[in-house]
Simulated assay, not measured.
Amino acid sequence: MSRIAQFQQIVDAEQYFEFFDLPYDAQFVNVNRLHILQKFSNYIKAIDRDSPDLNDEEKLGQYRNALQQAYDVFLASKPVEQKLFKVFNEKPQNVVLLTEIGTD
């Protein structure tokens, strides 16, 4: 099986780190799993869109860097700051935020 085929079979965050031989904190990944995977997915889409002529090994190298970047993003910031998921971008209905209350 080719390495790109192996990559396409991965389903768990930890498997990605092991596939790319990247060090990771298992507890950190467990807490931030969905955010890391979503950011990684966004990076992969950008790589595939912006660099369609890469061969498989070049692509996997870019993917490896993307996974490391996705992991590093959440070491430096909180998931809510990244606003990757719809729930973080929607304004709650029937709620008035303190910042919306003016003073006279």
Results as ranks from 00 to 15, higher is better:
residue 5 A to S: 14
residue 21 D to G: 07
residue 46 A to M: 14
residue 36 I to M: 06
residue 79 P to R: 02
residue 67 L to W: 00
residue 61 G to Y: 06
residue 23 P to T: 04
residue 83 K to P: 12
residue 55 N to E: 15
residue 10 I to W: 08
residue 18 E to M: 14
residue 4 I to C: 11
residue 79 P to D: 04
residue 12 D to F: 15
residue 12 D to S: 13
residue 59 K to V: 02
residue 23 P to F: 05
residue 85 F to G: 05
residue 15 Q to L: 08
residue 87 V to S: 04
residue 94 N to T: 01
residue 77 S to K: 05
residue 28 F to V: 00
residue 9 Q to A: 11
residue 23 P to D: 07
residue 95 V to D: 12
residue 30 N to K: 12
residue 102 G to N: 09
residue 49 R to M: 13
residue 22 L to A: 06
residue 64 R to N: 11
residue 71 Y to R: 00
residue 36 I to G: 00
residue 19 F to Q: 13
residue 36 I to A: 03
residue 31 V to P: 01
residue 60 L to W: 03
residue 22 L to G: 06
residue 59 K to F: 02
residue 11 V to T: 13
residue 82 Q to L: 10
residue 91 K to E: 10
residue 85 F to K: 07
residue 97 L to V: 12
residue 99 T to F: 14
residue 46 A to T: 12
residue 34 L to S: 09
residue 87 V to L: 03
residue 101 I to E: 13
residue 47 I to E: 03
residue 73 V to P: 05
residue 103 T to E: 12
residue 47 I to S: 02
residue 25 D to F: 01
residue 101 I to F: 11
residue 51 S to W: 03
residue 92 P to F: 11
residue 22 L to Y: 06
residue 32 N to Y: 02
residue 89 N to M: 10
residue 25 D to R: 00
residue 58 E to L: 06
residue 78 K to T: 12
residue 74 F to V: 00
residue 102 G to H: 09
residue 78 K to M: 13
residue 87 V to Y: 03
residue 8 Q to N: 15
residue 24 Y to H: 04
residue 98 L to N: 14
residue 101 I to D: 12
residue 35 H to W: 05
residue 40 F to W: 02
residue 104 D to A: 01
residue 24 Y to M: 04
